[in-house]
Deep mutational scan, measured.
Amino acid sequence: MASQGTKRSYEQMETDGERQNATEIRASVGKMIDGIGRFYIQMCTELKLSDYEGRLIQNSLTIERMVLSAFDERRNKYLEEHPSAGKDPKKTGGPIYKRVDRKWMRELVLYDKEEIRRIWRQANNGDDATAGLTHMMIWHSNLNDTTYQRTRALVRTGMDPRMCSLMQGSTLPRRSGAAGAAVKGVGTMVMELIRMIKRGINDRNFWRGENGRKTRSAYERMCNILKGKFQTAAQRAMMDQVRESRNPGNAEIEDLIFLARSALILRGSVAHKSCLPACVYGPAVASGYDFEKEGYSLVGIDPFKLLQNSQVYSLIRPNENPAHKSQLVWMACNSAAFEDLRVLSFIRGTKVSPRGKLSTRGVQIASNENMDAMESSTLELRSRYWAIRTRSGGNTNQQRASAGQISVQPAFSVQRNLPFDKPTIMAAFTGNTEGRTSDMRAEIIRMMEGAKPEEMSFQGRGVFELSDERAANPIVPSFDMSNEGSYFFGDNAEEYDN
């Protein structure tokens, strides 16, 4: 993207840094990872977990959730003011799984939030270390993106479920800051804005008074975040219109849905970061690795190297396929839920299948599930090659597409044709070009129609051997075009429920 120079890199967003050079960025990201790792080690000690239990991804998720809940100030305040039966607002906890007599047992633990905050700050040299908290939120978000298709949420806001490739980060909490905003897809931002506008339509006082002023500035800020994701002048001009509207209503909703559809071809720039579970960072720190000293990046080879040398386990339900569970977590670790499966298959070195073909449910185990038949197995999170994460949407291309997802959002900077089903997408653009945004709409449609099938995206960008740390010898991959490109292809993934 041309304006790259004016933006802070995501590592800076990730670490609240002012302008830093590459070495400083690597050190501050490393410091953040160190903090998460030290916190995780301490929690495993508190909970008396064995090494194996500490490497269980379900335990990692519970521990991450506990610290996120302990620092969720708004919710904590709300819980104190609106006490609900049987919930102690000062405590947080969740299921911890232990191996007892050759069987997995679930144990519900409860801790004072104050105590968890103390352990977290102690692991982070006394700081609140917001960057580390956001990092864990993005890992949870990436896992949700890989596990669930947001059909219901899309339909509720009037969008087409086939636009799911635009929904990265749709389950990120509001408090995820600049680093969170960077990884949100165009569809996620559109959905947040539509929800806001709908509230304004239904509630006369939404934009009024002292609160209304705050609401208005939040609305304009979200519009600017979305505008910054678009790469064409016409899309940005249309966002200006939406932002400046005196009284946002149905016309703005129409414009936003139009823009979301246009992003299936004229893709937005959305950041991709490899955020790993805390149970990967903990053992690495415990083994003596100093992330701050060595430096770390979320968008280069580092996460690949770390996963190459990590042992992570997962509980497996009786009829689940461990290899499929591994694929789910591998995609989440690489922030690749909406990437082209052919690119992923090449990088991973084994075939990556669409969601609907995987015999696996989510990673988390519900409290009512029976533990008797639970097994555990090693997650295979290694890769054959590594590639640089991208934040450009890439230019655009036609490809055989599917009944489910009709476009992709690249996660890796790797040369390819970008699949999208042009006739299906263009069919949504018939007729409606009147109104105050008509010239911009016409211009956007013209650009979409001009998108050429034979153009290559990320020209000359390749993948790298894991021994090639400096990215000196790019390998331009070859793809098996007979395979499906979309992950949520004609899909039956479970729906995400809060």
Rank of each mutant, 00 (worst) to 15 (best):
L306R: 14
Y385S: 04
A233M: 11
N492K: 12
I347M: 13
A27F: 06
T146V: 08
G462V: 02
N492F: 12
C279A: 13
E465Y: 00
K273N: 13
V270Q: 15
S69G: 15
E254Y: 10
H140I: 09
A401K: 15
S170C: 05
P410C: 14
D127T: 13
I197R: 01
G288W: 08
F464A: 03
E469M: 05
R246F: 07
G490D: 02
R195M: 07
S376P: 13
M136T: 05
S402G: 01
I63G: 00
L108Y: 06
P354G: 05
G185I: 03
S407C: 15
G86C: 03
L264F: 14
G349D: 08
K293L: 07
S478K: 11
G37L: 08
K229N: 13
P277Y: 08
N498D: 00
G228S: 10
D160V: 09
E294N: 15
G5N: 07
N59R: 10
G460T: 06
R221L: 05
G349T: 08
A332R: 03
C164G: 04
D16E: 13
A284T: 05
V242N: 05
Q415T: 12
K293E: 13
F458Y: 15
I119A: 14
V280R: 05
F420G: 00
Y97N: 09
M371N: 05
I225D: 05
Y487D: 04
G349K: 07
E292F: 12
G177P: 06
D127N: 11
E107V: 09
L298P: 02
N321Q: 08
N397V: 06
S457R: 01
P95A: 15
G35N: 12
T424S: 13
V312Y: 04
I119V: 14
R26S: 14
L193I: 12
R382A: 04
A129G: 15
V270A: 12
M374G: 03
M222A: 13
R246Q: 12
F429Q: 00
Y289P: 02
R75I: 13
V270I: 13
G180I: 03
D203I: 03
S3A: 15
D468F: 02
S478W: 13
K113I: 05
M331F: 03
M136H: 02
L344P: 03
D255G: 06
R102W: 15
R8K: 00
N370R: 07
V242E: 11
T430A: 14
D439M: 04
K90Y: 02
Q364C: 12
A427G: 15
M371Q: 05
T134G: 02
A153W: 03
R436S: 06
S141Q: 01
K422H: 14
K422V: 07
I194G: 00
R55A: 09
S262W: 06
A237V: 00
M371P: 04
E11V: 13
L154M: 13
D439Y: 04
I316C: 15
N370H: 13
N202Y: 14
I365E: 06
H140W: 08
C279V: 12
T430P: 15
K351L: 13
T6Y: 00
T45G: 05
K48A: 14
D101W: 01
N247K: 05
Q122G: 03
L298I: 10
G158V: 03
G30L: 01
T130C: 12
